[in-house]
Design a protein around this nucleic acid. Structure first.
Lengths: 146, 146
DNA sequence: CCTTGACTTAGAGGCTACTCTAAGTCTTAT
DNA sequence: ATAAGACTTAGAGTAGCCTCTAAGTCAAGG
């Protein structure tokens, strides 16, 4: 028992507009139509759409995803390429996590800085305790601007 | 000794175009000009630009960053708001890391699936061992397509 | 003086990924 | 039969973020 586009939109949280957009873009070549030309999604289709969402969230562009879809349609010959693609994406996500952790550390630093500044009631009071400068402080230099 | 826009571009990896774009967008109101109207970046400016990069990488929009810049210029009154902003962004990044880990697990699963499929030489051979279906398999159903 | 090259501006163009409108078709219930 | 509501298409519009062009200014070297 197939699903309509509206039902899939509800299930996946992707709007009908976007689903049609993906279809137009060649990301959903497997979706069947009924006699009236309406899309009929199987639950395997829905699962695949969720996979697309997942890939997109890892930072894969629609073009790359289309590439993967095309490979999938091409059959078993492309298995090694698809394996390679997922390994690459795996690495990419690992890198993303590392980068995010680096940024988190910077944010932690900032939070400590602003906590101290808030407690002290002024930024100038804690400047110098923080490596990351905030706006060339109006408080720090006597100011000789125009 | 101040830096030119070209030097800052080299140092930060942000193109001159983008730096000017950021300036136009009000993200760099602190950058001074020389008599000829050319931008002169201090090293504090460069540090701040790196902070902007960092915030952008955490998913903050330029509009939000502008908001932060404006608050910084407004002085110590906005310290609590800035603290709150960084705390929010900290939480956002923690969430991003969690989400990335969830996706990484899915990718790991996919890699295992395709590794098995590659070893077996066909997708059909390992289908059913994987929750995430790949394209409504040409291999699984007898196929009655056009 | 004149060229080279780094800078200035305003504004046009481009890319990705939607998001929506318009006009029309199909399905279902009353 | 007809009205409501979910669907169809092509194509225009939007948002965010650059990216570049054109035309001009300025400083230093030959």
């Amino acid at each position: 028992m197939p699903y309509s586009i509206g039902q899939v939109a509800t299930q996946t949280g992707i709007t009908e507009y976007t689903l049609r957009f993906y279809d137009k873009a060649g990301l959903l070549p497997f979706v069947k139509r009924n006699a009236a030309g309406r899309r009929q999604f199987s639950s395997a289709d829905v699962d695949f759409i969720n996979l697309i969402s997942c890939l997109k969230d890892t930072g894969m562009s629609l073009a790359e995803i289309k590439n993967f879809v095309d490979m999938s349609l091409a059959g078993d010959v492309t298995l090694p390429q698809r394996l390679a693609l997922f390994k690459r994406q795996q690495q990419a996500v690992r890198q993303q996590i590392q980068d995010a952790e680096t940024r988190l550390a910077k944010l932690d630093h900032k939070v400590r800085f602003f906590q101290a500044a808030c407690d002290a009631g002024s930024e100038a009071a804690v400047t110098g305790q923080c490596v990351l400068p905030v706006v060339p402080a109006a408080a720090e230099t006597p100011d000789h601007s125009a």
